[in-house]
């Protein structure tokens, strides 16, 4: 199983560590050549991509300039399992990569003083620790989107077909359950991407 982690800016190393601990092979994507290598390498159909936390404006800028925007968008629409945390959630929404039928509200909890930790119920997992850092939440979601977690009534985790997003950062905690859920999606997907 191979997981590509977008490594343009942000906390990609934390995802890398998490996936490695779970036994997945990881590749950091810094440019188009890295992406092409990843997509053409043999994986037995078990491949997935992750967009980490960081600043979505910074990642979007580099992604567009590097010519990564269209190939990544196309791959996800073709079924590549994709996992986005925080900025990654924003990047999968209608206003960015436009692959997932959600609208993210950026900096929904305000500035750094609004960052917080909590625990919440996650559909199919149970209680998970949730770390929100200048986090977004999902303010609109289409009919195909399943909301997986809410905090104070706001949607903070969701799934749509091959896509999984969280507004919080499972990669910053010791709890591996959300990453395991994503690896489960990769295993079940079996799309020849």
């Amino acid at each position: 199983m191979k997981i590509a982690i977008l490594a343009l800016q942000g906390a990609f190393a934390e995802h890398e560590q998490m996936f490695r601990n779970l036994g997945a092979e990881t590749t950091l994507i810094r440019n188009l050549a890295d992406w092409r290598n990843f997509m053409s390498s043999p994986s037995g159909g078990m491949r997935g991509g992750t967009i980490p936390g960081g600043e979505s404006t910074a990642m979007m800028r580099i992604m567009r300039d590097e010519g990564l925007f269209e190939p990544i968008r196309r791959a996800i629409l073709d079924g590549l399992p994709a996992f986005g945390t925080c900025a990654g959630l924003i990047m999968l929404d209608r206003n960015h990569l436009n692959v997932m039928d959600i609208k993210a509200r950026r900096n929904a909890y305000g500035r750094q003083l609004g960052s917080f930790n909590t625990e919440g119920d996650f559909v199919g997992i149970g209680q998970v620790p949730m770390t929100f850092i200048r986090a977004p939440y999902i303010e609109e979601a289409g009919p195909e989107v399943e909301i997986l977690a809410r905090v104070d009534g706001k949607a903070v985790a969701a799934r749509q077909k091959n896509m999984l997003v969280t507004a919080f950062h499972p990669e910053l905690t010791d709890d591996t359950s959300v990453h395991e859920l994503f690896l489960g999606m990769v295993t079940k997907c079996h799309v020849p991407v």
């Binding site: 490594a7 343009l8 800016q9 942000g10 906390a11 990609f12 190393a13 934390e14 936390g53 960081g54 600043e55 910074a58 925080c86 900025a87 750094q112 960052s115 917080f116 930790n117 770390t131 850092i133 200048r134 950062h169 910053l172």
Partner: peptide, 18 residues
């Protein structure tokens, strides 16, 4: 309960590579 030190270290983690 609220651990600002950790949350603040984590914001810096989000700035990495930037």
């Amino acid at each position: 309960m609220e651990d600002r030190q950790t949350l603040n270290r984590q914001l810096a983690q989000m700035l990495k590579g930037g």
